[in-house]
Simulated scan of single mutants.
Amino acid sequence: MDDIKIGEILLPGEESEQERRERRVRSGFWPTFRRAVRQIPFSRDVVAAYFCAVDPETPTRTRGILLAALAYFVLPLDFVPDMLAAVGFSDDIAVLTAAFAAISGQIKERHYRKADESMRDRPNG
């Protein structure tokens, strides 16, 4: 994946697009996360990003970027099929890493606390 493609994926989008992405993320995040947890070296950050993205107190631009990255993460069809365990989540990792860089510092401690609680309460994520 090149920077231009990742940049296109991470466009925050209009409010209606963000709402559509949020529905997709809310419905698909946990099943996808459970499949990916062992391949993603920063799982706690991904879960905290989820809680940040669905937090109404999060700034709109930050929510938009995170929802775009997380929607890509849960999308069943992407550039590298997620079923290929060794490399399947590498493009998702690249998109999530770029999103974290774009929203630097916007994931708050409360999001990490929710991530820790959630990961503790859910087997395998």
Rank of each mutant, 00 (worst) to 15 (best):
residue 2 D to W: 08
residue 2 D to L: 13
residue 3 D to S: 15
residue 5 K to Y: 09
residue 6 I to C: 03
residue 7 G to Y: 10
residue 8 E to D: 07
residue 9 I to S: 08
residue 10 L to C: 12
residue 11 L to A: 08
residue 12 P to L: 06
residue 12 P to G: 03
residue 12 P to I: 03
residue 14 E to C: 08
residue 14 E to F: 11
residue 16 S to A: 07
residue 17 E to N: 10
residue 18 Q to G: 06
residue 20 R to L: 10
residue 20 R to C: 01
residue 20 R to F: 08
residue 20 R to A: 10
residue 21 R to T: 02
residue 21 R to C: 02
residue 21 R to G: 00
residue 22 E to H: 00
residue 23 R to M: 11
residue 24 R to P: 01
residue 25 V to W: 08
residue 26 R to L: 00
residue 27 S to F: 11
residue 28 G to L: 06
residue 28 G to T: 13
residue 29 F to Y: 04
residue 29 F to W: 02
residue 31 P to C: 04
residue 33 F to Q: 09
residue 36 A to G: 01
residue 37 V to I: 13
residue 39 Q to L: 06
residue 39 Q to W: 14
residue 40 I to L: 12
residue 40 I to G: 00
residue 42 F to R: 09
residue 42 F to E: 05
residue 43 S to V: 12
residue 44 R to S: 13
residue 45 D to S: 10
residue 46 V to L: 11
residue 46 V to F: 04
residue 47 V to M: 05
residue 47 V to F: 01
residue 47 V to T: 12
residue 48 A to W: 01
residue 48 A to E: 12
residue 48 A to V: 10
residue 49 A to M: 01
residue 49 A to R: 00
residue 50 Y to Q: 05
residue 51 F to V: 05
residue 51 F to D: 11
residue 52 C to S: 09
residue 53 A to C: 06
residue 54 V to Q: 04
residue 54 V to I: 14
residue 55 D to A: 14
residue 57 E to S: 14
residue 58 T to A: 01
residue 58 T to W: 04
residue 59 P to C: 08
residue 59 P to W: 02
residue 59 P to A: 15
residue 60 T to L: 14
residue 60 T to D: 09
residue 60 T to W: 15
residue 62 T to S: 13
residue 62 T to G: 04
residue 64 G to R: 08
residue 64 G to N: 12
residue 66 L to P: 04
residue 67 L to Y: 08
residue 68 A to K: 11
residue 68 A to R: 13
residue 69 A to Y: 13
residue 69 A to F: 15
residue 69 A to N: 15
residue 70 L to R: 02
residue 70 L to K: 05
residue 71 A to S: 10
residue 72 Y to T: 13
residue 73 F to Y: 05
residue 75 L to Y: 07
residue 76 P to S: 12
residue 76 P to C: 10
residue 78 D to E: 07
residue 80 V to R: 08
residue 81 P to L: 05
residue 83 M to A: 06
residue 83 M to Q: 12
residue 83 M to N: 12
residue 85 A to R: 15
residue 86 A to G: 08
residue 87 V to K: 09
residue 87 V to C: 02
residue 88 G to A: 10
residue 89 F to N: 09
residue 90 S to A: 09
residue 90 S to Y: 04
residue 91 D to R: 13
residue 92 D to A: 05
residue 93 I to G: 04
residue 95 V to L: 03
residue 99 A to L: 07
residue 100 F to C: 06
residue 104 S to E: 06
residue 104 S to V: 04
residue 105 G to T: 06
residue 105 G to W: 04
